[in-house]
Write a protein that binds this DNA or RNA. Sequence first.
DNA 1: GCGTTGAGTCAACGAGCGTAGAGCGAAAAG
DNA 2: CTTTTCGCTCTACGCTCGTTGACTCAACGC
Lengths: 186, 186
Amino acid sequence: MSELPRAERRRRTERRILDAARELFAERGFERTTIRAVAQAAGVDPALVMQYFGSKQELFSAAVRVAPAPVAGLGPEELVEQVLASLGMKLGELPQASLAMMRSMLTHPDAAASARATLSGQIAQIGASMSGEDARLRAALMTTIMLGVTVGHQLLELDELRDVPPEEIARLLRPCLRALTGPDVP
Amino acid sequence: MSELPRAERRRRTERRILDAARELFAERGFERTTIRAVAQAAGVDPALVMQYFGSKQELFSAAVRVAPAPVAGLGPEELVEQVLASLGMKLGELPQASLAMMRSMLTHPDAAASARATLSGQIAQIGASMSGEDARLRAALMTTIMLGVTVGHQLLELDELRDVPPEEIARLLRPCLRALTGPDVP
DNA sequence: GCGTTGAGTCAACGAGCGTAGAGCGAAAAG
DNA sequence: CTTTTCGCTCTACGCTCGTTGACTCAACGC
């Protein structure tokens, strides 16, 4: 039917499966997403998904594998703006891999481990850009604050946050985060 | 074996089932918790759980049914303290019913609806205690902030937040919430 | 051309799940 | 003591899931 070379055809199919998996994992989470549903969304036989990824768990790992956005920090000012920018991105088009990971992080052990690693990395980066005794703790709070806002907006889709422009949220959140960066500028 | 009256025996068994259900739902979420596991933890036959609660869904509803702590607000000062106190409770002995609801809110549709209702109620209460144009939005951000910190601490159990006394977290979070209450005192 | 490789399908297995109904034995009612 | 009630168990059904191995057929190397 199609006259594509085998390697290209293979890559495209694999990508279709991964895209479908990301979308379904982000929408329903790990447990409620079935291999059969992913295969159907990708227009493929369920056995092929297994053949390519080995198991549902490995499919999930491959689907949520994404490069975490680095927070190269300088002063507190830029730090807050960068964190807020990551929220702006999150409120806009947060990559579906991240949504998939967040959706499952409370119920799927591997997603929880992945989320912990990602968040700890972000906390370490933010903490390194701050000074003060409890910089690490303040960085952790900044991160969990962003996590909560993102969860409430993107996953729970709270009415009070829906249809609110990201800049408005960022504007209100800015002094809130400033209160955590500490008084001193490194 | 036991010589308890029937009504009392029934009530105790039902309570044992509900306690086991709450613990397992809080620990593993809705989908990973099986009726069989709840029954075993309660020392009871799985069919009895069905007989008492009708379905797994109704068992979950009964398990997470809990009176939401009211936030009777006055001025911004008391408001912040009250929200932080609710966090203090949350970081201490947050009722397992709430943990069960939070654990499942991202993957189980009914838990999501329940969480939305609870959070919206809290947002409305906080918003009613504040003045200003976007009081509702600021209340929503306060609520999601607390949600994020609670999730990161209680459910994800981030290393950076573990072993941190609640007062320390409350101390750092206080100016953060103050920045959202707005300048005016009603 | 021709055998080989590999993408993709088909049918099915085994396990675990939520759930239903019959039955048992002790407490309550008479 | 007899009958009824009901807390509780046992067994099993039906379904869906992840996963597997045999198969088909078009693309590839020679």
